[in-house]
Design a protein around this nucleic acid. Sequence first.
RNA 1: GCCGCAUUAGCUCAGUCGGUAGAGCACAUCAUUCGUAAUGAUGGGGUCGGGGGUUCGAAUCCCUCAUGCGGCACCA
Length: 648
Amino acid sequence: MAQITLTLPDGNARQYDAGITAGDVAADISSSLGKKAISATVNGQHYDLRWPIDSDATIDIHTTKDRAPALELVRHDLAHIMARAVQEIWPETQVTIGPVIKDGWYYDFDRAEPFTPDDLATIEARMKQIINARDDVRTEVWDRDRAIQHYKDKGEPYKVELIESIPGDEPLRMYWHGDWQDLCRGPHLQNTGQVPGDSWRLMSIAGAYWRGDSSRAMLQRIYGVAFTNKEDLKSHLTMLEEAAKRDHRRLGREMDLFHMQEEAPGQIFWHPNGWTIYTALQDYMRRKQRADGYVEVNTPQVVNRKLWEDSGHWDNYQDHMFIVEVDEEHAREKTVNALKPMNCPCHVQIFNQGLKSYRDLPLRMAEFGSCNRYEPSGALHGIMRVRGFTQDDAHIFCTDDQIIAETEKFIKLLASVYADLGFDNWTIKLSTRPEKRIGSDESWDRVEAALGDACKAAGYDFELLPGEGAFYGPKLEFTLTDAIGREWQCGTLQVDPNLPDRLDASYVAPDGDKHRPVMLHRAVLGSFERFIGILIESHAGKLPFWLAPQQVVVATIVSDADDYADGIVAALRKAGIRARADTRNEKINYKVREHSVAKVPVILALGAREVEERTVTVRRLGEKQTQVVALDDIIASLVADATPPDLR
RNA sequence: GCCGCAUUAGCUCAGUCGGUAGAGCACAUCAUUCGUAAUGAUGGGGUCGGGGGUUCGAAUCCCUCAUGCGGCACCA
C-alpha cells in the first residue's frame, strides 16, 4: 500500500496509507477530534470525512466550531432531510435539486398537488423525527450507467437528466440518510443527529422552473433558513421583521407619500409628501449635473414606430413597449406609435439636428426622461419595479479617445452624489463582452480596457463580470449597500457605438470628414422611483432633513399659543422650510405621537411659557430629550439643516 | 409571463357548518386647554375586488377576469 503525506495546518506532516479518510485521520490525531469532526478541507476542497485521500495533501479538520463549513453542512444536510421528509409523507413526490443558498437552502420538488403553508409544519415535524433518529449517513461512488438505470427504474427523469449533464470524468456519488437515497456531490455530516434541532425553519413555498428555464416544468420550491445555533436563527428572523417594518410600500402609506391602484398597475400616484421628496431629489440632481457640464433636454413620449425600427427597439424590445395605435377616426392614416421605453433614440435626434463638430464633443445631454416599459406582471414590486418611471438619464456623445476621461468624470460625479445621499459603501462591476455581440474583438479590447482604466484613474477598484455586457458594448454597474446591508444596483455606464451608427449620428472631425461618435448611456440614481424606494427603506422613513417632506410641525399645547404658532410657521416658510402648524385641540402627547409616526424630523412645541419667552421647545425625531431654544436661533439652525448637501 | 397565496369600512384584520357583516385605529360631533409617543363620550361609514354559475339562500362553494403579495423567469 502506497504511503502519502498529509500536512496539518500547524505544519506537522503525518504518513498514512493512501486511501485513508479524513475521518480516520481525525480519530488518529485524537479520539475527541474524531468524535467532534464534521468535515475537512483537503487541498482547498471541502471534503467529506468518508472520502478516501489518495495522494499527498494539506488537510484541515473541521468541527462544529468552524462556522463556514459547519453552516454549509448543516444547510446541505437539512436540504436532504427535508427532501426525505417530503418523500416519506408524499411518496409520489419527485425530488430534483436542493442547494445551499445565502442563509439557508431550498429544494425543488415535482408533485401534482401544491404544498400548502400547513404542510410546512407537517414537514418540519417529520424532519425533527429524522434528526432525532440520528440516522447514519453513508456514501458510495456509482458508475453512470448504474445511476441512470437506477433513476430510470424509479421513474425519476429529473435525476436522469441531472446525471446526464454531469461531466463524464466526475465521480457520481450517492448518499443515504437512513434508507433514503439521493444523488449528491457532498460532503455531508456523519449522521442526521448532528443537525441542530432548533436553529432552522422552513420559510416559504414558491414556484421555480426546472433548471431555471421558463420553457420547462414549473416545480415547487420550499425555502428554509438554517444556522448553527438558535441565537443566529433568532437574529435572522428579527432582521426580517426589521426589513418588513422599513418596507417602502408600508411607509409610503404611513407617511402619505404615494399610492398605486389597479387601474394603473406599475404606475405611481405621487401624493404631495412623496412628490416633495421627488422634486427635492430631482432639483439636487439637476444642480449636480449642470455643475458637471451637462445640458438638459426634453423629448417626446409618443414616438412613431419608424424611429423604434431604426433604433432596433422594434425588433428587440417590442414585447416591453406600450404600443399606441391612433385609429382612422382621428387620423387620416392609421399610425403606430410606442411610448418611449428609453430616451437614447430621441437624444440622438437632438444630436442630429444641425452639423456637429469635434469641437462640440463631448456633448453631455441629460434628460429626466419619463419612460414606460411594459414589464411582466410578475416583475412589478411597489415603486421599485414599475412600468412608468423617470430616469436621471444622460448620453454623452464623444470620441473613442474621450471615453476614459468622460467615464472618470462620471464616476466622480456618482461618488459625490452617493456620498451626499449617505451611501458611502458602494462597488463597481465591469461587465465584459457577451457571446452574442457585435463589433470587432479589437474594439472590445480597447473599450473594456478604457472602462477599467477610468475606474483606476478615479481611484476605485472593480469586480469583473465576464460575459455580462450588452451586445453592443461593455458596461459599468454601480452597486450601493443600504443601511441594513442590502445591495442595490443603481448607477450604470454603458459604452454604445451601435446606436449612433443605426441612427446615423456623426460629427465633423479635424480632418474635415464625418465620423461616428460613441454614446455613453449613464445614470447615477437609475430611476427616481426606485431610488426613492431605496432611500425610504434605508432610512426607515427617517429621511435626511433636506429631503423630508414635512420638515417641521409647530404643535401647540394650549390654544393661547395658536397665533404664536402661525407666526412661526409663516417665518419658517419664508425661510424655505416645509413647516405647518398643528393647533388642533389635542394633547401634546397625541400630537407628538402622530407626527413621530409620520416621521416628521422636528416638532416645535409651544405652551404658555414659550409664548411668554419667545422661545420654542425642540423635539427631534428619535430623541426623547427636548431643548428650549430662542426663536431666531432655531430658524437659523433649521435653515442650515435644510440646505441640500451640494449647496453647503 | 409561470407556480402558489391573497383581496371584507380610509388602514390593520376577525367572520365557525352556506342563513344576509364585526373589532381596533382613522373620520365627524360634543366635552376637555392639557408640557412631549394614543383624553373621554356619542355618531356616521361596507353591492364583502369585477363578472358569471351552483343553491330556497353565497363574504363563505365552483368558473373566470383583474390587482396585490412571495418566489421563478425577465431586466435588448
